[in-house]
C-alpha cells in the first residue's frame, strides 16, 4: 500500500513536470493537460511472450512508466497472427488507458484476412523506429551483389526464403520482383531463425532478414549480407559497409515499423498525454539502448505524422500484396 502511494506521488510530480515541459514547448494548451488521468494502464502485446513484439512492448511500457510514473501492466494476447490482440484493443474504444505494441501486422492483417478493424480504427500514438532488412546469402554462395541475385533469378532461378505470406520478407521479394521483372522460387518458413537454418543448410539460396536477427551469423562469417533494403546505408559499424539495393539500381526499400497505438475514440487530452510521454521516452537513454541493441533506425514520429505514415505504408503494402 505504502509503495503505491509513493508511486502515485512520483507520478503526480512527473505529470506536473510533463505539463510544464510541453507548455514550454508551446504545443498543447497547458490548462487541459491535467484533464486526463490514466488508471490501470495496460499495454497489450498481440504476440506471445519472448518475441520481438514482446520485447518492444515491454521496452515501451517501461519507458512510459519512467516518463509518467504510472504502472503499466504488459499483457500478451496472442493468436491469429496478432488479430486477437488488435481485436481486443478494437473493443476498448474510447479507453485512454489501453495501449498496444503495434507493428506492420496492424496494416497487413486487414489487407489479407477478414478482420473487423483497420489502421483507421485506432489512435496511433508513436512510431518507435524502423527495422529494415538485409539480403543475406551463405558464406560460400556465388552471389557477390544483389544484382547477381536478380540476374540469377532472371536466368537459372533463385530459391528465396520467406517467413510467411504476409511477412516483411515476402513483401520485399515481391517488390524486387515488381521492380526488376524477375521471379523468385519461394520456400515458406515461420520465423527468422528458421530462415537462417535454411540458409546454413543449403535449402534456400537467399533470405531477407532484420539485422538484429542475423548479426551473430554475419559476425561469425557463416552468412554474408549483400545489400540492405533501406533508403540509406546503416550507420551501425558492423554493417556500415553493406551497400543499399538502391545503390545497385534496385529501387526497393521497405521498413517494418514498431510503435504503439491506443484505441479509437479516445479524448484529445489522453492522446496528447501519451504523445508527451512518448517524446520523453525517446529522449531517454533506455530508448537509445533498445534501438541500438536491435540495430533499428531511431526515426520516431508521433500523432498526426504517424497517422500519415501509416496511410502511406498501408498503400505501399497493398500494392506489394496485390496479385
Amino acid at each position: 500500500m505504502k509503495s503505491r502511494i509513493t508511486t502515485a506521488a512520483i507520478g503526480a510530480v512527473a505529470i506536473a513536470a510533463l505539463a510544464g515541459c510541453s507548455s514550454a514547448g508551446g504545443g498543447a494548451p497547458a490548462g487541459e493537460e491535467g484533464a486526463f488521468e490514466p488508471s490501470d494502464v495496460r499495454m497489450t502485446v498481440p504476440f506471445s511472450a519472448g518475441g520481438g513484439s514482446d520485447a518492444s512492448g515491454r521496452a515501451i511500457a517501461s519507458g512510459l512508466e519512467a516518463a509518467t510514473g504510472t504502472t503499466i501492466t504488459v499483457e500478451n494476447r496472442e493468436g491469429g497472427s496478432g488479430a486477437v490482440g488488435y481485436s481486443h484493443l478494437f473493443a476498448q474504444e474510447g479507453n485512454g488507458s489501453q495501449l498496444l505494441a503495434a507493428e506492420t501486422t496492424l496494416l497487413s492483417l486487414p489487407l489479407t484476412t477478414d478482420v473487423d478493424y483497420d489502421h483507421t480504427s485506432f489512435t496511433p500514438i508513436m512510431k518507435l523506429g524502423d527495422d529494415y532488412t538485409l539480403v543475406v546469402v551463405p558464406a560460400d554462395s556465388p552471389f557477390q551483389t544483389c544484382t547477381d541475385v536478380v540476374d540469377a533469378a532472371g536466368g537459372e532461378g533463385v530459391v528465396a526464403a520467406v517467413s510467411g505470406a504476409i511477412s516483411l520478407d515476402e513483401i520485399v521479394f515481391t517488390l524486387i520482383e515488381q521492380d526488376q521483372g524477375v521471379e523468385f522460387d519461394r520456400v515458406p518458413f515461420e520465423s527468422g531463425s528458421e530462415v537462417i537454418a535454411g540458409l546454413l543448410g543449403g535449402t534456400v539460396q537467399v533470405g531477407s532478414l532484420n539485422p538484429g536477427e542475423v548479426l551473430g551469423q554475419l559476425e561469425s562469417g557463416d552468412l554474408r549480407a549483400l545489400c540492405s533494403l533501406s533508403e540509406e546505408r546503416y550507420e551501425y559499424e558492423q554493417i556500415a559497409d553493406v551497400p543499399t539495393a538502391i545503390e545497385e539500381g534496385i529501387d526497393v526499400s521497405f521498413a517494418q515499423w514498431r510503435g504503439f497505438i491506443a484505441p479509437g475514440g479516445i479524448s484529445d487530452e489522453a492522446r496528447q498525454y501519451w504523445i508527451d510521454a512518448a517524446e520523453q521516452y525517446v529522449a531517454s537513454e533506455e530508448y537509445t539502448t533498445y534501438i541500438e541493441e536491435n540495430l533499428m533506425q531511431p526515426n520516431a514520429v508521433y500523432g498526426d505524422e504517424f497517422v500519415e505514415y501509416l496511410a502511406q505504408n498501408s498503400a505501399d503494402l497493398e500494392a506489394a500484396l496485390a496479385p
Binding site: 491469429g80 497472427s81 488479430a83 486477437v84 481485436s87 484476412t113 477478414d114 478482420v115 505470406a165 504476409i166
Partner: peptide, 17 residues
C-alpha cells in the same frame, strides 16, 4: 503455405492461429 487462407475458422479471430 499462403498465410492467408482461413480454414474452418467460421469468422472467429481466435481460431486464426
Amino acid at each position: 503455405g499462403t498465410g492467408s487462407t482461413e480454414r474452418f475458422t467460421f469468422g472467429n479471430v481466435n481460431l486464426l492461429s
